[in-house]
Write a protein that binds this DNA or RNA. Structure first.
Lengths: 155, 155
DNA sequence: CAGAATATTGGCATATCATGCCAAACTTTC
DNA sequence: GAAAGTTTGGCATGATATGCCAATATTCTG
């Protein structure tokens, strides 16, 4: 399995990051190949796990998920048991899109999606702060979106 | 144009958020329709902008984008000119995946993707803090990923 | 540098799929 | 309860995906 991506591979990835449902015929034309080798490359990228999956991107404001909030959480203690239980709880909440453990001032950062500010406060009060591991939550509330991208930068 | 989603529409959206390249035949089977009305519904959801686009999701660790950092930025001043220039700068950086203006302690929060910690510090020192609008940057550095989802919660 | 081994490509054949159209079934409205 | 409007399912057609094979390009080796 070749894990070194050449220029054509990166071109394929760039195109597929912009439009995941492009037909293989058109993709091949864009990257300058005929359909057969193009499809083979895509399959290899999929099998290597470089292409993880294809998804439909919904308009958050139109499906009642218009507010994105970044929350910083401090735990009561930092032991493995507390962390594990926090992870399990977080994975059950569909509102939590991303969650990372951090070092420094806080123990975890989350990207949380809800309909609006009211829904967020309810989620924080009813669910997030009720996870036993959680000591405190700090948030910065977004007022306006300056940028939202779905393309990872390809060096 | 019907903007009220019924159960079938939400089912379609759920399936497409998990697999954006599923064939219409299989999608129809999963939601309990025949292919024709199923495709019609998908097209309507696309035209309404509820489905914004389809994208390939890449494995960040395999394309040199393994580190996600949330940064909080304070501006020198809060006037419109400073904000506008910040927005333009941020949109030019492919590393900046998301950027929101906030009220409260900081003026903006960013989700930034780079290869590793070294690349991030270089990005922050060479680019982010050199935007004239930027006074200071605070970050929490993630050590471990607990959750990463691409599905907006559908009420 | 030559020759062989390997990997990659392009074209073709076939099965699957997308998509427009129309009649039938269902829902809503008055 | 009848009529208008909406949604559905099936069919036909054109486009697409995909496996296979020969030809080409690339890399390795002596």
């Amino acid at each position: 399995m070749t894990l070194t991506l050449d220029a054509i591979d990166r071109h394929i990835l760039r195109v597929l990051q912009r439009g995941g449902r492009i037909s293989n015929v058109e993709l091949a034309r864009e990257v300058g190949l005929s359909p057969s080798p193009c499809l083979r490359r895509v399959r290899l990228l999929e099998e290597a796990g470089i292409i993880d999956r294809y998804v439909a991107v919904l308009d958050p404001t139109k499906v009642g998920a218009g507010l994105t909030v970044f929350a910083r959480v401090c735990f009561r203690t930092q032991d493995a048991e507390v962390t594990l239980r926090f992870a399990e709880a977080v994975r059950r909440f569909p509102e939590v899109m991303e969650c990372y453990l951090t070092t420094g001032e806080c123990d975890a950062v989350l990207r949380i999606v809800t309909a609006d500010l009211h829904s967020y406060w309810r989620f924080q009060a009813d669910h997030l702060t009720r996870i036993p591991s959680v000591l405190s939550v700090k948030t910065d509330v977004p007022m306006e979106t300056l940028k939202r991208s779905y393309e990872l930068p390809l060096r």
